[in-house]
């Protein structure tokens, strides 16, 4: 048995960034979900960016976890944006029939951060 791969979570301003660089096992995704919830709660971050530009497949389990992360973040008043989805992954997700729920998507990190900034302005705190 190998251990859980902990995905590093970086803080930029009031946004948390998790960049997924490994082939995800189910328990890695579950760990990320827990780590993000704790980090949002501890930092009061208003946004979460999941960078999946290095991810070569998203199946229904991983996709559902993205939706769960977004739903959990929302409870802490934070929005979630998934950025950098590869074209082949996007085509496959549509055919698989998976919708990502409340998850916003953006082409790249820059556009993802812009979306979060916009959402932050709409709901000033």
């Amino acid at each position: 048995m190998t251990g859980v791969e902990r995905i590093p979570i970086l803080k930029i301003g009031d946004v948390l960034l998790a960049s997924i660089q490994v082939d995800l096992q189910d328990r890695d995704v579950l760990a990320l979900q827990e780590d993000l919830a704790e980090k949002i709660s501890a930092t009061g971050a208003h946004g979460v960016v999941l960078d999946i530009s290095a991810v070569d497949i998203v199946d229904s389990f991983i996709g559902r976890m993205f939706a769960t992360i977004a739903a959990t973040s929302k409870l802490f008043d934070a929005h979630t944006v998934v950025v950098g989805m590869r074209p082949a992954v996007a085509i496959t997700l549509v055919e698989l029939g998976l919708t990502l729920g409340e998850v916003r998507t953006a082409l790249d990190l820059e556009k993802g951060l812009a979306i979060l900034a916009e959402l932050g302005e709409q709901a000033p705190r």
Binding site: D56, I57, V58, D59, S60, F61, R86, P87, A88, V89, I91, T92, E95, L96
Partner: peptide, 13 residues
Amino acid sequence: LVDQTKLVTATSE
């Protein structure tokens, strides 16, 4: 690449 991704995703499920 798209067909690879589809097959890998299906087998992951």
